[in-house]
Simulated assay, not measured.
Amino acid sequence: MLETLLVVGIGLAGGIAVGAQAPIAGSMGNRIGGAAGSLIVHLSGAAASLALLIIRGGENISDWRSLPWYMLGSGVFGLVLYLSLSQTIPKLGATSAITLIVVGQLMAGMVIDHFGLFEVSARSVDLRRILATALLLAGAYLMLR
């Protein structure tokens, strides 16, 4: 039970981080451009990751050559995210932009889970998950109105 609460807390912390970072990235992209903002965000993230990697003794970084191509190129998704934030936040506001991101994550997550893509354990889409998705989409609709 404690482990589950810890994992939920970590997930919420990630959501809070995205929620805080999104308007910062949107404003930065609006001021200096989406690609420039993305570069700054990724350089600062790389520096923070390097510091954490050093603290953790390098983890398994030497095995990077064994990773599939799609894992090595996954940083492209960060660029897409920041370019979308630089366009949506100034026009729609932070809440609507983040709502769209959450809906997109939900759609991607359901497809990834259903087909077991990217080494994720398959979880079939069932009626309960469809109903949960419908409720989340209804909430997103209300947020965007």
Score class of each variant (00 low, 15 high):
Ala97His: 00
Ile55Tyr: 15
Lys91Val: 14
Thr95Ala: 13
Gly58Val: 00
Ser86Met: 06
Gly34His: 03
Glu119Tyr: 15
Leu39Arg: 06
Met71Pro: 09
Leu72Glu: 03
Val80Ala: 12
Gly116Ile: 08
Phe118His: 08
Glu59Cys: 14
Glu59Met: 15
Val111Ala: 13
Gly109Ser: 13
Ile32Ser: 05
Leu106Asn: 06
Val120Pro: 08
Ser49Glu: 09
Leu67Thr: 00
Gly75Trp: 01
Gly45Thr: 03
His42Thr: 05
Tyr70Gly: 06
Val76Pro: 02
Ala36Gln: 10
Ser86Cys: 05
Gly58Asn: 02
Ile40Ser: 11
Tyr70Arg: 03
Ser74Ala: 15
Ala51Glu: 07
Ala94His: 08
Gln87Ile: 12
Glu59His: 12
Gly45Met: 01
Ser121Arg: 15
Ser84Arg: 08
Ile98Glu: 00
Ala48Thr: 12
Leu117Phe: 13
Ser62Cys: 10
Gly58Gln: 01
Ile61His: 09
Trp69Ile: 10
Ile32Met: 11
Gly93Asn: 03
Ala108Trp: 12
Ile112Trp: 05
Gly78Pro: 04
Phe77Pro: 07
Ile55Met: 13
Ala47Phe: 07
Leu81Met: 13
Leu100Thr: 04
Ile54Trp: 14
Met107Cys: 15
Leu117Ile: 09
Val80Ser: 08
Trp64Lys: 11
Glu119Met: 14
His114Glu: 09
Gly45Lys: 01
Ala48Tyr: 06
Gln105Val: 02
Ile112Ser: 00
Tyr70Pro: 07
Pro68Asp: 07
Ile98Cys: 05
Val120Tyr: 15
Gly75Pro: 00
Phe77Asn: 05
Ile101Ser: 11
Val120His: 14
Ala36Leu: 10
Tyr82Ile: 11
Leu43Ala: 13
Gly57Leu: 02
Ser86Gln: 06
Pro68Gln: 06
Leu52Asp: 11
Gly73Pro: 04
Gly34Trp: 02
Leu92Asn: 01
Phe118Ala: 07
Leu50Phe: 13
Phe118Asp: 02
Tyr70Ala: 02
Val41His: 04
Arg65Val: 13
Gly78His: 04
Ser38Thr: 14
Asn60Ala: 14
Pro90Cys: 04
Leu106His: 04
Gly78Tyr: 05
Gly57Cys: 04
Gln105His: 08
Pro90Arg: 02
Ser66Ile: 11
Asp113Met: 06
Val111Leu: 14
Leu81Ile: 11
Leu67Ile: 05
Ile54Gly: 07
Gly45Ala: 03
Ile89Pro: 00
Ala51Gly: 12
Phe115Val: 08
Leu92Gly: 02
Leu79Gly: 03
Phe115Glu: 09
Thr88Glu: 05
Leu39His: 03
Glu119Cys: 10
Gly116Val: 09
Phe77Lys: 07
Trp64Met: 15
Leu85Met: 10
Pro90Lys: 01
Leu106Tyr: 09
Ile32Asp: 02
Asn60Met: 13
Met71Val: 12
Leu39Trp: 05
Ala36Asn: 12
Met71Phe: 13
Ile98Asn: 01
Gln105Gly: 07
Leu72Val: 05
Leu85Asn: 01
Gly75Cys: 05
Gly58Tyr: 03
Ser49Ala: 15
Gly58Pro: 00
Ile112Leu: 03
Gly116Gln: 08
Ile55Glu: 13
Ser84Thr: 13
Phe115His: 11
